[in-house]
């Protein structure tokens, strides 16, 4: 059946930025899959390549200096990297759409929110201006904003309200996939929960798959079925929520959990991960995590680990499990 099939399949994707300082290897040979209606969390520190991955899928890697240097992005079996500009434009907003990080800057300040929602509807659906506005009003109501506010401008909305508008734009054409790039990072904690709740609700209602980019493991636990942990442009661990949270394998993932405060365990201190994310221009040899890894062995410094399936659907990229 079509509905059970893979929606998005990423194979061996690498995206580099060619700058004067050298080649920034932002995304290196990542693979993952996303089924219809599924939610996957893409977790990592700042600079791990999460946003670049998202932009890669959208076909919005800033070029120059960025370029997809290898791999495949299969959307419903079709390679997006081979699609023409026109084809990509027809996909964007209709089949997959993106929610950007900062709602304060994601909306055009000189257009009314109604116009901005109606714009995407009119691009992908053959509706008159009036009907598009009508539909925009419905969508605005759906994200919890009264339709009367259609004619207002972004500066008349609060941050949380703006993010609702951004979500409305992303969902306006009922896309099959939503890529949400840290949708709640810029919001107050109280608003974060509301926005996530709204996204989850709408996602269920519309049957949309979601790739949720975040550095917040708590958000992932609340929202996702699947998790991929990214480090230095690679996916170091990936699996179902249970696999990754209850049966953590990779030292980096363990480190991430170790640096979270927990109410149930009376730990003495939080254990941060020593050191910093490596410079993507000059990645370490062998395993990119070895300089910070507490379990580093001699072989980690020279040999790069490969993706290993430790249990069905649970992948780790670490020499200890090879």
């Amino acid at each position: 059946m079509e509905t059970t099939k893979k929606l998005l399949e990423i194979k061996d994707l690498s995206i580099h930025y060619f700058t004067e300082e050298g080649v920034v290897r932002a995304v290196n040979n990542i693979d993952f899959e996303l089924m219809r209606g599924e939610t996957m969390g893409l977790v990592g520190e700042t600079g791990a390549g999460k946003t670049t991955t998202a932009r890669g899928i959208m076909g919005l890697v800033p070029n120059p200096p960025g370029r997809v240097v290898g791999g495949e992005i299969l959307f419903e079996g079709k390679d997006l990297l081979k699609a023409s500009n026109l084809e990509m434009r027809l996909h964007r907003g209709k089949d997959f759409s993106m929610i950007f990080q900062d709602p304060m800057t994601s909306l055009n300040p000189i257009l009314t929110v109604g116009d901005q929602i109606a714009e995407v509807i009119r691009l992908h659906e053959k509706l008159s201006r009036k009907d598009a506005n009508l539909k925009a009003a419905q969508i605005l109501e759906m994200v919890g904003i009264p339709a009367e506010r259609m004619s207002e401008y972004p500066h008349q909305f609060s941050g949380g309200m703006k993010q609702r508008v951004v979500i409305a734009i992303a969902l306006a054409c009922s896309p099959k996939l939503i890529i949400a790039d840290e949708p709640t990072t810029a919001l107050d904690v109280t608003i974060q929960a509301q926005v996530l709740e709204l996204m989850r609700e709408l996602q269920e209602k519309l049957g949309t798959a979601m790739l949720l980019i975040t550095h917040d493991l708590g958000v992932v636990a609340d929202t996702c079925n699947k998790v991929a942990i990214m480090y230095a442009g690679q996916i170091v661990e990936m699996g179902s929520l249970e696999d990754v949270y209850d049966n953590t394998m990779h030292p980096y993932t363990k480190g991430l959990f170790g640096s979270l405060p927990s109410l149930s365990m009376k730990s003495k201190r939080l254990v941060p991960i020593d050191g910093l994310m490596p410079d993507p221009v000059d990645l370490p040899t062998g395993c990119p995590f070895h300089p910070r890894c507490p379990d580093c062995k001699e072989s980690c410094k020279s040999r790069a680990p490969v993706k290993t399936e430790v249990s069905p659907g649970h992948y780790v990229r670490c020499l200890r499990y090879e």
Binding site: S106, L107, E119
Partner: peptide, 14 residues
């Protein structure tokens, strides 16, 4: 370079 330009592109705008 503003985000809303990317938002417009992400809508599939020309």
């Amino acid at each position: 370079r503003q985000d809303y330009i990317d938002t417009a592109r992400a809508k599939g705008q020309k």
